[in-house]
């Protein structure tokens, strides 16, 4: 029997809430070194990769590898029933049946909650993702995640363009990043300049530009990532017209969540 135990219920609640809008199924892999999750959206434009090393958990035990495809919406629903301080135990039988059991144990209430999830397909993941070098990107933008969330919210104001999915154009030029969305009844633009002020030294917006770049993204991907970005203080956006764009938030040196989005030039 394989039996990882962990206590990051709140963290997983937030991850599942952020991902389950866009990604239906995910591939989970628990190993001695930690958890790796990958999911791809149904239009196969975006891939999310979550890596969380074992040290990121208060308590993590996993003697042997355990990997499976699971439905994210079902998991989000199950996690909504759990308390934030529950201990989670994940069990799968050695003879490899096609279900996994998540047990939520509340030490305070003396309550145990058990969910069995059937394995599902995982839509083509996991994939081998190369580590791209920063120098391969035309521009890299770093900003506080709160600022990124504000921008996404503003872009959504005119985001509903009717029959087509609303899109956002992100352009980097002259040390500034411009985000533009066109809706049915108007447009919304935000321009961010590089900032590194003395009063907020920990919250700079940094723009590294090798050359100008302009890319189009469906607003839904930006909105989903902005939800996931609550897990970190800062976001990094790597832009290239030849490589997948990467929206990344690091989780306190113990892992990361990355959205890879297929490039679409303006």
């Amino acid at each position: 029997m394989l039996e990882p135990r962990l206590v990051q219920t709140t963290f997983f609640k937030n991850v599942l809430e952020a991902l389950s809008d866009l990604f239906i199924e995910a591939h989970f892999e628990f190993s001695r070194t930690g958890l790796e999750l990958q999911a791809i959206d149904t239009s196969r434009v975006a891939l999310v990769a979550l890596v969380l090393r074992a040290e990121a958990f208060n308590h993590y035990l996993c003697d042997r590898g355990l990997s499976m495809g699971l439905n994210l919406a079902d998991m989000a629903k199950a996690f909504r029933c759990a308390n934030n301080d529950d201990i989670i135990t994940i069990k799968a039988e050695e003879d490899w049946t096609d279900t996994v059991t998540f047990t939520f144990e509340s030490p305070e209430d003396g309550e145990i909650l058990e969910f069995d999830f059937d394995f599902v397909g995982s839509n083509g993941v996991p994939l081998e993702i190369p580590e791209y070098q920063e120098s391969e990107y035309q521009a890299i933008v770093r900003m506080p995640s709160a600022k990124f969330m504000r921008i996404c919210k503003k872009l959504s104001s005119f985001g509903d363009s009717g029959d087509r999915d609303p899109v956002v154009i992100i352009s980097v030029y002259k040390e500034r990043v411009r985000s533009f969305a066109r809706g049915k009844t108007g447009t919304s633009t935000t321009v961010c300049l590089q900032t590194q002020t003395v009063d907020k030294p920990k919250e700079p917006t940094l723009i590294e530009m090798k050359e100008e770049v302009s890319l189009i993204f469906d607003l839904k991907y930006m909105n989903s990532f902005s939800k996931a970005s609550t897990l970190s203080d800062q976001v990094t956006i790597n832009l290239s017209s030849e490589l997948p764009a990467v929206f990344e938030c690091k989780i306190a040196e113990l892992g990361y969540i990355r959205y890879y989005i297929s490039p679409r030039k303006e």
Binding site: A46, L47, P126, S262
Partner: peptide, 14 residues
């Protein structure tokens, strides 16, 4: 605009 390709074309199956 240019057609958006599948994200899978950038990554290999392990």
């Amino acid at each position: 605009g240019a057609k958006q390709g599948s994200i899978m074309s950038f990554f290999k199956k392990p």
